[in-house]
Simulated assay, not measured.
Amino acid sequence: MDRDALLDEFRRFLAVQRGLSEHTVRAYLADVANLLGTLVPDDVAGAEDEAGADGSPPADTPEPDRAQVDLVLLDLTALRSWLAGQAAAGRSRSTLARRAAAARTFTTWAHRRGHLGADVGLRLLSPRPDSRVPTILAVGEAADLLATAGELAEDGDPAHLRDWAALELLYAAGVRVSELVGADVADVDRRERTLRVLGKGAKERVVPFGVPAARALDAWLDRGRPALATDTSPPALFLGARGGRLGVRAVRERVHALTALAGVHDLAPHGLRHSAATHLLDGGSDLRTVQEVLGHTSLATTQRYTHVSAERLRAAYAQAHPRA
Rank of each mutant, 00 (worst) to 15 (best):
P129R: 06
Q86K: 04
V120F: 07
A100I: 00
L299S: 01
A101I: 04
T230A: 07
R132G: 15
A324C: 07
G52D: 13
I136G: 07
A277P: 07
R193T: 10
S275T: 15
D60M: 01
E151V: 08
G295C: 10
A229V: 02
D31Q: 07
A97T: 04
D144R: 15
G85M: 03
A277K: 10
L313R: 13
T194Q: 05
L195S: 00
V185I: 14
Q291D: 01
H256F: 10
A186F: 00
A320D: 09
A78K: 06
A186R: 14
A51L: 04
L36H: 10
V72Q: 11
A102I: 05
R104E: 05
T301M: 12
G263H: 11
V44I: 13
D218H: 12
V255S: 10
T297I: 02
T306I: 07
L198V: 13
P64R: 13
A88N: 06
F13K: 04
D4P: 02
P208E: 05
A138R: 13
V120G: 08
D231L: 14
R113E: 15
L146H: 13
P208S: 14
P158N: 07
D155Q: 06
L124H: 02
G117R: 11
L7I: 13
A324T: 11
A310I: 11
A250H: 08
A320R: 00
R223P: 01
L161C: 07
A202S: 15
L237M: 12
T230W: 06
R312A: 14
T297H: 12
Q68N: 03
E141V: 08
A229Q: 05
A143S: 10
P134W: 10
T230R: 14
F238H: 05
H23F: 06
P212S: 01
L6Y: 02
D4E: 15
Y317R: 00
A53S: 08
D184H: 08
A276E: 03
G174Y: 12
G244F: 05
T306K: 08
L272M: 12
L221Y: 12
R80T: 12
R323F: 03
G117N: 06
F106W: 05
L313D: 09
L228S: 09
H270E: 00
P58A: 15
